[in-house]
Design a protein around this nucleic acid. Structure first.
Lengths: 271, 271
DNA sequence: CGTACCTTTGACGGCTGTCAAAGGAAGTGG
DNA sequence: CCACTTCCTTTGACAGCCGTCAAAGGTACG
């Protein structure tokens, strides 16, 4: 019913950051790319598809067939838990590669779904094999990408085990802010956050009722207010202190590998 | 103090499964390897090091320099949480590659430490780049490996959010059993489990006190008993039912990629 | 202008944590 | 091989964070 995906050839690459496409930028967070490597990536972003809110990208149990590069909008991957709930595993933001962690599985473990309208670039999963064969730097960037995606989940588990609910909420908000900041300019004082209290509760392992109580408290304390699609932070200092955010796990550098990558033959990477 | 690692050239590859080394077997869970690819891997397993219980492999904040292939014994990776506790992120079993998720980071996020005596094969992290450049199938197997390692964490978070403590404990025990079974023959009725109640509590986000109450109950219900280094299951059927274990997320197949891998040039993989 | 979902509130309860202390088992050094 | 130390396991009393249940009020969307 809400699973419809409609073609939309005109939503292509955001032309910021020296004309790089989103995918190119995502990879260049981690490694430098040659012109031919950029071209290799560009060929996979020719045909973005516009999606509606709630659009289903795949279902758990489906044969793994394609990944999606999220071009605009927000999405989630979820897993069905024993009690019949869809537990959100990952929150995907523009530039993220949805399904990179599952291209080596025969069947999807997760379900992937847009939570806002947006656009995605489909990407046959076998092509990952071609990219691996064609370019070592891009492959390293893919490892870097998947590892950071995993670090987000790890961090969420860590926080679930060691923080109370209020601290978890604040941490998550700040984490999301920093992720957004890597994509485009955002103001901490007021930024887009199209996540319902219900979804937030799900991601953090809390109940919507309790999440609501937390936001009530945060507002009464003059720290921030959550609107339907946006968060406004009134007391930046207070929020940052209480969130105790340390963004090591979002760091992009692959320092120790640069020399080794430079030693590789420069012919690497052209299609 | 307990960080000592002593050289021990004689603990080399376990000679089961048609003479394959542990690393070769780990990779072949996911893809088929040519003779030259096996040779490529074998050259990295020449010099295992014997480790003591509690031996430190690396510390959080250390420059990333080497990975370890766990040859024997059990190990953990941990992250320091805000409250000063070392939260266990991963439990590593023989054949696992410790640190694969961090070779693209400049500094280690985690600490890695043996929890039993054992042996590890050190592996300079730059060599991962060489392997990626040399063999696409092995690279795909590395992706498969890292993805499954992470699926374990995801599953643990899922269970933390949706199961009560007793169910979590049972699930974890069965999960570990199935992981062990991929390495060597194990009996569900009685198998090695050198994890203290304290460590188990840490991994599952519970307190040692509560874990103890759970094992007390499990024993009183005639389901199982945990000894210091071993678990004995008295009521296999009862345990399996209550654990509600579904091992999709441990599945090894990379089915959809086999054809694409077969299309690659056969020269791939020789050193 | 109705319908569906999201947010908000209040009362109540339980799972699990905290605190404290004693008993055991393993490893260490003399 | 024994005494000592240390860490792990076990128990009991108590409490709190957050879940559950229920219902009303908002807000977007068709």
């Amino acid at each position: 019913m809400s699973n419809k995906i409609t073609p939309h050839p005109k939503t292509a690459s955001s032309a910021k950051h020296a004309g790089l496409t989103l995918l190119q930028r995502t990879m260049e967070r981690h490694v430098g790319l040659s012109a031919s490597e950029r071209a290799l990536l560009a060929q996979y972003e020719q045909n973005p598809i516009s999606t509606r809110k709630e659009a289903l990208l795949w279902r758990a149990g489906n044969k793994v067939g394609e990944l999606f590069i999220l071009q605009s909008g927000w999405a989630t991957t979820t897993r069905l838990s024993r009690d019949g709930e869809q537990q959100i595993i990952e929150l995907m933001l523009p530039g993220d590669i949805i399904g990179l962690g599952e291209f080596t599985f025969a069947k999807h473990l997760t379900e992937a779904r847009m939570i806002t309208q947006g656009s995605v670039q489909s990407f046959p999963h076998e092509n990952i094999v071609d990219i691996i064969a064609a370019s070592t730097p891009i492959t390293v960037a893919l490892f870097a990408n998947i590892s950071r995606q995993h670090a987000l989940v790890t961090e969420r588990m860590l926080n679930a085990f060691h923080r109370n609910s209020r601290s978890r909420v604040l941490h998550f908000i700040i984490e999301t802010f920093f992720r957004l900041e890597k994509i485009h300019h955002v103001e901490l004082a007021s930024f887009a956050f199209p996540v319902s209290q219900r979804l937030l509760a799900n991601m953090l392992g809390l109940t919507p009722v309790h999440i609501n109580r937390i936001f009530k408290g945060l507002e009464q304390d003059g720290l921030l207010k959550k609107f339907r699609d946006r968060i406004e932070i009134y007391d930046v200092k207070g929020v940052m202190e209480e969130a105790e955010f340390d963004n090591d796990y979002l760091a992009g550098d692959v320092d120790g590998l640069k020399e080794r990558l430079a030693m590789l033959s420069p012919s690497d990477g052209s299609p």
